[in-house]
Design a protein around this nucleic acid. Structure first.
Lengths: 192, 192
DNA sequence: CGATTCTTTGAAAACAGTCAATCTGTGTGG
DNA sequence: CCACACAGATTGACTGTTTTCAAAGAATCG
């Protein structure tokens, strides 16, 4: 499974074998079964997680017990809670597996060492940060400017790979609408 | 005005005088009058902008001519369009001044040189990235989980400094509601 | 001032949420 | 392998929220 991670990196930057060994040395693989938590509200997140296979979901639970999905992550993406990581405070979110999944874990201090040691790795990570930020902005834009139906269409158009493999009630919680509303929207859309 | 920028940096990291000179050498000051554009839709954004004084706003305009505000930035924050900067494509957004403002501009290639040359500067910028990302996530969470009234309360609680100096119709466009709805919400809230 | 833009208000319509019931599919234990 | 239980999805009727459109008041700027 580690080769998924290696391929991901070497597809993006040039890495010597020595450098890859340095990375490999601090990686640990973890298998998650469907419904298993990677992070639970109240825990402190201290690692970085790369997804080799599967699908994870980060969500918060409000005072009424309603789940609100912040993010879905599939193969070749990262998962985690940067806020908890940076501040060292307990996480407000949960991350669990929607499918049986395999992730690479790297402890934060070792991760930071890698960034300092291997410029290419650092560049790669920075690039991901940029991309995440752009994606967030895009989502904010969508969420303040689109109607429920438009949000749904926007999502299935821009993330068809994710949309196809998640349950609808989670999609609803990601779009910020109720499962009932999503159901009606889908009915409407197919009738066009 | 540049001293605002210097203070901002030296409050966060330790910098030698030589390093500051290197930074100073690539800074240019720009004054913006209220309503003046820093970036217009279709332009390519190639710089970094730090706000010494004033208030800027980044927004997109949809097919119906409605403005949607992505971000407000005041003194001691940055403004720009990373998406356009990174991809080199025309921006989808406008940035203009809500008040008479003064910004420091640094060309992107010189900015990148600074990051490579001055580790402290690089750390600083990375830290801002992290913070921006966290703030974005927080906003996404708010926008999918809160009602219009809650979003309003959340905003004035978390950004009282910004909330106090922007016109209401812009606040509405930031919260993703109509000016009329915001007006009614405010009336309700004060009657409690 | 006068003109423009911003804010507020009202009434009606569109939209999305709630609650309850039914339908569907999946997986588990007997 | 079937039957049952259970979670998820859909539907209907109703309620509540937000938008739309139109108009009237404030506030601001030249």
């Amino acid at each position: 499974m580690l080769d998924v991670f290696k391929k991901y990196i070497t597809d993006k930057v040039v890495l010597s074998e020595t450098e890859w060994s340095q990375i490999e040395a601090v990686c640990s693989l973890k298998k998650l079964r469907k419904h298993q938590f990677l992070l639970q509200e109240g825990d402190i997140w201290r690692t970085h997680a790369f997804i080799c296979q599967g699908c994870l979901r980060r969500y918060g639970i409000d005072d009424n017990g309603i789940e609100h999905t912040i993010q879905f992550s599939i193969e070749n993406w990262w998962a985690g809670d940067r806020e908890s990581l940076m501040s060292g405070t307990p996480s407000k979110y949960n991350i669990d597996a929607i499918e049986d999944s395999t992730v690479v874990l790297i402890k934060n201090n070792e991760f930071e060492t890698l960034c300092k040691l291997i410029p290419a790795f650092n560049d790669l990570i920075n690039n991901i940060l940029f991309k995440s930020l752009n994606a967030s902005q895009e989502r904010i834009h969508a969420s303040i400017s689109l109607s429920a139906e438009e949000k749904y269409l926007h999502f299935i158009k821009n993330s068809p790979d994710i949309a196809a493999r998640i349950p609808r009630h989670m999609m609803a919680s990601y779009l910020g609408i109720t499962p009932e509303t999503l159901s009606r929207i889908r009915k409407q859309v197919t009738n066009k």
